[in-house]
Simulated scan of single mutants.
Amino acid sequence: MESVNSSKPRYECLLFDLDDTLYPFSSGLSEACTNNIIEFMVEKLRIDEDGVVELNDILYKKHGTTMAGLKAIGYEFDNDEYHSYVHGRLPYENLKPDPILRNLLLSLPFRKLVFSNGDDTHVTKALKRLDIEDCFERIISFETLNPKIHDSCVSDSLICCKPAEIAFEKAFDIAQLNPYTTLFFDDSIRNIQTGKSAGLHTVLVGKSEKVYGSDYALESIHNMKEAFPELWSESNNKNKKPESIGYATQISIETSVQA
């Protein structure tokens, strides 16, 4: 039987998706992003407007991101231009500083990383708007998983991104993290399911009920302490910080937690 006072913590790292995870879907960024992608497909790639919505949905579901799908079926375009068009016009003003989330993150001495399919500029801008950019050890982004390689033998048409297993494997290797001691937060069921198969402990964010592949379900990232009080118990046992941050009365408990 595992000792309650075991010196080895169950979790050593917290791995977070960004979009619709560290901020809510209600921000409107996801809807705006989808509209920008469709506009890019029509305006830049000259795809027939009549079928573009359906094509976008098919590519996203099959390849993880529309960008990866477009590259896979033979469309050629500059990655930076795509990201600038799709993310550069998002309503970032809808994202506000989140002191509750900031206190939650800073009160935990575990390793904390962001793992996103978004590009560096998008991820950094969103984190800054939320005022949590300094809460993470590092960001694993599109550029991290897809470094620019000037080699004629390497195809630029193959994009590495979640939910592909190789994306998770690369992230583990780059960050030198052990999936079996890592808690993974994401709003995507597919990402959660791949993460679970890769050994991660999984938390589906934005949903009230668990699905296949998820160990926990949180309607809001603000409910972390409600769902995982052991994280704070472990952090207190580490004695890495002389003072504790009081925020219990600030945390919204209007959403449900399922474990």
Results as ranks from 00 to 15, higher is better:
residue 66 T to W: 04
residue 146 N to K: 08
residue 96 K to A: 13
residue 127 L to G: 00
residue 174 I to V: 11
residue 212 Y to F: 12
residue 170 K to C: 09
residue 147 P to R: 05
residue 158 L to I: 11
residue 190 R to A: 12
residue 81 E to S: 13
residue 220 S to W: 05
residue 153 C to R: 14
residue 176 Q to T: 00
residue 14 L to G: 03
residue 24 P to A: 02
residue 240 K to E: 14
residue 42 V to F: 01
residue 242 P to G: 08
residue 95 L to F: 07
residue 227 A to D: 02
residue 18 L to Y: 04
residue 214 S to V: 03
residue 66 T to C: 10
residue 108 L to A: 05
residue 116 S to T: 15
residue 199 G to C: 07
residue 100 I to P: 06
residue 92 Y to E: 05
residue 208 S to V: 01
residue 148 K to R: 10
residue 42 V to G: 02
residue 71 K to N: 10
residue 148 K to N: 08
residue 53 V to P: 05
residue 42 V to S: 01
residue 70 L to M: 09
residue 219 E to W: 05
residue 236 N to A: 12
residue 58 I to S: 06
residue 43 E to R: 15
residue 137 E to G: 04
residue 192 I to W: 08
residue 21 T to Q: 07
residue 83 H to D: 10
residue 132 I to T: 00
residue 87 H to P: 04
residue 107 S to R: 05
residue 140 I to V: 11
residue 216 Y to K: 01
residue 229 P to E: 06
residue 162 K to V: 08
residue 174 I to P: 00
residue 64 G to M: 02
residue 143 E to S: 15
residue 162 K to S: 05
residue 64 G to F: 03
residue 95 L to S: 03
residue 25 F to H: 11
residue 223 N to Q: 14
residue 136 F to G: 01
residue 75 Y to P: 00
residue 123 V to S: 02
residue 246 G to H: 09
residue 206 G to R: 09
residue 162 K to R: 11
residue 30 S to Y: 10
residue 2 E to T: 12
residue 249 T to W: 12
residue 232 W to L: 06
residue 161 C to H: 06
residue 236 N to D: 14
residue 219 E to R: 11
residue 160 C to M: 14
residue 221 I to F: 08
residue 230 E to Y: 07
residue 34 T to K: 13
residue 124 T to E: 09
residue 27 S to N: 11
residue 199 G to P: 08
residue 54 E to G: 03
residue 54 E to M: 12
residue 25 F to Y: 11
residue 165 E to D: 12
residue 259 A to Q: 15
residue 34 T to F: 05
residue 40 F to W: 01
residue 187 D to I: 09
residue 232 W to N: 10
residue 173 D to I: 03
residue 2 E to W: 14
residue 36 N to Q: 14
residue 46 R to C: 15
residue 151 D to V: 02
residue 203 V to W: 01
residue 133 E to W: 07
residue 189 I to H: 07
residue 206 G to M: 12
residue 258 Q to M: 05
residue 66 T to H: 04
residue 9 P to F: 03
residue 202 T to G: 02
residue 235 S to T: 10
residue 16 F to E: 04
residue 171 A to G: 09
residue 160 C to F: 09
residue 15 L to D: 03
residue 259 A to W: 13
residue 100 I to D: 14
residue 200 L to W: 00
residue 79 N to Q: 13
residue 65 T to N: 02
residue 61 K to M: 10
residue 162 K to W: 11
residue 164 A to V: 02
residue 118 G to W: 07
residue 8 K to M: 08
residue 13 C to W: 00
residue 55 L to F: 04
residue 19 D to Y: 04
residue 242 P to L: 14
residue 252 S to Y: 13
residue 45 L to E: 03
residue 230 E to V: 10
